[in-house]
Design a binder for these strands. Sequence first.
RNA 1: GCCCUCGUAGUUCAACGGAUAGGACAUCUCCCUCCGAAGGAGAAGAUUGAGGUUCAAUUCCUCACGAGGGCACCA
Length: 569
Amino acid sequence: MTNDITSIIAECIAEAVGEPVDARLTVPEVPEFGHYATNIAMRLAAARGKKPLALAGELAAAIAKNAPAGFFGKVEAAPPGFINFWLSKKTLQNELARVARDRKFGAGNIGAGKKVIVEYSSPNIAKTLNVGHLRNTIIGDALANIFEILGYRVIRWNYLGDWGTQFGKLIVAYRRWGDQAAIGEDPIEELQKLYVRFHEEAKTDPELERQAQEEFRKLEAGDAENRKLWEQFRSRSVEELKGAYAALGVPDFDVWVGESFFEGELKKIARELLERGIAERSEGALIVRLDEFNLPPALIEKSDGASLYLTRDIANLAYRLKKYKPAKILYVIGNEQTLQFEQLFAVAKKLGMDSAELKHVKYGLVLGESGKKLSTRAGRTVSLKDAILKARTLARQIVGEKARDLSDAEKDEVAEAVGIGALKYNDLRENRMTDIVFDWDKMLDFTGDSAPYLQYTYARLKSVLRKAERSAARRSFAGLDSEDELALMRKIFGFPNAVARAGELYATSILAAYLYNLAVAANKFYETTPILKDESASRRASRLALAAIAARTLADGLALLGIKTPERI
RNA sequence: GCCCUCGUAGUUCAACGGAUAGGACAUCUCCCUCCGAAGGAGAAGAUUGAGGUUCAAUUCCUCACGAGGGCACCA
C-alpha cells in the first residue's frame, strides 16, 4: 500500500540530492491543498557547507527539473530552508481517477504474507467483562484488521486467563458460600460475587488465602473434584464471552487457547531452565536472574511447586513459535504489566527464542471516576454490559428523535451501530499512554470528534448519491478545482499512508485522526459545494464521483476500526 | 528506594526534532425559502519548573515538582 504521489516526490528529491531519501521522513504533509514540504535542505546544509535557504533553492530547481512534465504546479524554497511542492490540479485529478477505477489504492503489500499473532482481549474467566476489557478488545481487533489489510496473515488469539491461584480462591469461596440456584441463573455474575466476597473475608481471615493456594495446587495436581468445578466455571464463561463479543460486533477469534492449555508443559519448562543453568533455586522457589537486563528476578515456580503466569507465558511463546512460525507477536495488554513482559522477553532471549519480533502493545489504564484503578476484587468496576446498554439506549433515543423515515427495526439497528461506534471510537482515537479516566459523558458524546459524526457524514454523502440519477457519477474529476473540492481530493490520498503508519506504530489513533479530518473536509465540501443542484451536468457527475469516493474511503477506514456505517442514520 | 507511563487552554486529547502548537467538549457570536443542523462559519483560551544538546525542542538528555501503575511465590 504505497502512495504513488509521495513515492514520485521522494524519487525527485533523491535524484536532486544524489542519494536515497526516506519518503516518509522528508515529505510531511502541510495542511494546505496539494502542498507537500521537505526539510531535506536543512538536514544537509551543514554537511555540504551551505546555507539552508541557498541549498533549498538549488534543490528546488533540480527537483522541478526531475519531475514528470506537469506533475507539480510549483516547487520553491522557503525560509528557513524548507522546500515546498504544490501538485498540479491535473495530477490530483488523474490520480483520483485512477483510484476510483481500481477501487483501491496502490497495491502495496507491506506484510508480504508474513504471519502475525495478535493476542488481545484475554479476559479472566469467571469474571464479567468491564470497560477495561473494552479498551483492550477493540484496540486488538482494530490492529488485527489493519495488519490484515497491510498484507499480513493475522492470527487473532484470545489468551484466556483460565488458570492460576484465582481458581483456588473461587473453589474455596464456592464451597463455603456458593448458591447453586443463583449460579444456574447468572453464572458469571454469581462467580464474581463469590470472588469479591473471598477478598473481603480474607482481610480478616488469612487462612482463606492459604486454603486457596492449596486448592489451586490440588487442581494443578489433577484433583478430580476441583477439576470438575473448574471445567464448569470455564465452559459457562466461554459461552458468556462469545455473547459479549457478538454484542460488541467483534469477530470471533481464530484461537481460544488459554493458560490452562499449557498446564502439561510447565514442569518441562522448569526442568529445562534448571538444566541449562538459566534458572536457580532461591528460598524454595525457582527463579531466573535477569541482572544483565537490569530487571528483578523472574519467578518461574512457587515454593510449593505451583506454576505462575510467567511460566505459562513462556510455554505459550514456545508453542507459538514452533506451531505458527510468526514474524511478529503482538501482546495487546495494559501498561501495568510492563515488567511482566520485560521479564518474559528477557527469558525468551536467554532461551534463544528469537525467531519472532515480540511487541508489548501497551496502553494506559482505564481509571474509575475517582481516579483510582478499577478493581474487580474490590467490586469497583463498570461492566461492559452496562456500558453497551447505556450507549445503545441513549443512541436509540436520539435516533428516535432525528432519524426520519426509518422503521423501528431500522432505528434499532442504527442505534446499535451509533452507540457501539461511539464507545469504540472514543477509545480508538486516543493513543496516549496516559491512563484515561472513565467518563460517561465523554463516552456518550455524539457530536464533534466522534463516531456518530463520521457516520453522519457518510450517511449524508450516501443520501446525495441515492438522489442522483443512476450511473450519473462518472469517474472523471476533470472539472473539480475549487479549494474545498481539491482539499477533499488531497485528503483522500492520505488513506494508504494513514493505514501504513497506524500499523507501523501500532496506533489506531492515527487512523482515527485521519478519518476525522477526512470527514471535516467532506462536510466542508458538502456545505459549500452544490452537488445535485449545479447547472453543469459534467460538473455534477464529477462532484458525485468525489462524494462517492469520499464515502467509500470513510466506510473502509471505519470498518478497519470495527465501526459500522449505516446507509441512513 | 528502584522501574514503567505521563504532565499542553475550564475539561479532554493531537502535534517523524521543523514553519503561526492543532482538534473536540464547555463558553460567546452568526447560518436551516439551497442536496440531512448528529452540520457549517467565527471569537476567546495552553506547552509544570530549571538547566543542557541542536541551525531548530511540546518532542531528546539531567534534575526538581506533580499524577497513575508496577516491583518474589496474584494475573
